[in-house]
């Protein structure tokens, strides 16, 4: 069931709010994925049986059925479908139950699109390469399994947060990543936005410094006051 390419992925969003799923589709189509949506349990169930998807994003709180049942159906299908369940922040039971039923990842509402994108990237790696594949971006190579980062073959000594930050940027290449989403990705909601700006700045500064020290280029751009963009740039 191995696939050759990871870039083009078929995703089904099961979400009853059409405006929300429309924005998912817009965002992830740009990313190069093929996106479909299902508004309710019945539609989702039908699509899962008829077509095959690489990833299904299921909101557990559907109006006409439990998203966990969809998870079961998806996992019983013939293809290795990755399932990410979406639920309210405070339902720990849903999370544990969903992961117990074989969900691959779990994300709480409300989430940043960049965050969901990072989860996709990690999930795709896990499905297709069992996480053993390195991520390349020009002279930068990241081996997620070993949590190692190399620039021009030389190992970087990154802190855990710096590593997570780099991986987050790489998952959201050529995209504007907001400060808020970085802060939430790195620290959860444990922190004041006012503080986090300084901290993010510090981390990014250190990451740039470490990459450049080994001869890497500076790929992180500041986008006005919004956030940062990791641009691969032209050859």
């Amino acid at each position: 069931m191995n696939r050759q390419r990871i870039e083009t992925v078929k995703i089904l969003f099961v979400e009853d709010e059409s405006a929300l799923s429309a924005s998912f589709v817009a965002y992830f189509t740009k990313e190069g994925h093929i996106c479909e949506t299902a508004q309710d349990f019945a539609e989702a169930s039908e699509k899962i049986h008829l077509y095959s998807y690489d990833i299904i994003v299921v909101d557990i709180g559907l109006p006409d059925g439990n998203g966990l049942d969809l998870l079961r159906e998806a996992k019983e299908g013939p293809t290795a479908t990755g399932v990410i369940i979406v639920s309210a922040r405070d339902s720990l039971e849903d999370k544990l139950h969903g992961l117990g039923l074989g969900a691959d990842d779990y994300i709480t509402k409300p989430f940043h699109l960049a965050e969901l994108n990072a989860r996709f990237a990690s999930l795709i790696r896990r499905i297709n390469f069992k996480g053993r594949r390195a991520i390349h971006c020009r002279e930068i190579e990241v081996v997620p399994e070993a949590k190692e980062v190399r620039v021009k073959g030389k190992l970087l000594a990154l802190t855990r947060k710096e590593y997570e930050l780099l991986l987050y940027f790489l998952s959201n290449r050529n995209r504007v990543v907001t400060k808020e989403s970085i802060a939430e990705h790195l620290w959860g909601d444990n922190m004041d936005m006012a503080d986090s700006l300084d901290f993010i700045y510090t981390h990014i500064k250190n990451l740039r410094r470490k990459i450049q020290a080994e001869g890497g280029r500076d790929y992180v751009k500041t986008i006005y006051g919004i956030g940062y963009k990791f641009t691969e740039g032209e050859e």
Binding site: L20, H112, L113, A114, Y224, G225, I226
Partner: peptide
């Protein structure tokens, strides 16, 4: 959630001017 995701979507636009971005 819709406001947030739509805004995140808008932010990705390449033709953003600074004041719009702000």
């Amino acid at each position: 959630a819709i406001i947030r995701t739509q805004t995140e979507l808008l932010i990705q636009s390449d033709s953003l001017k600074e004041e719009q971005a702000q």
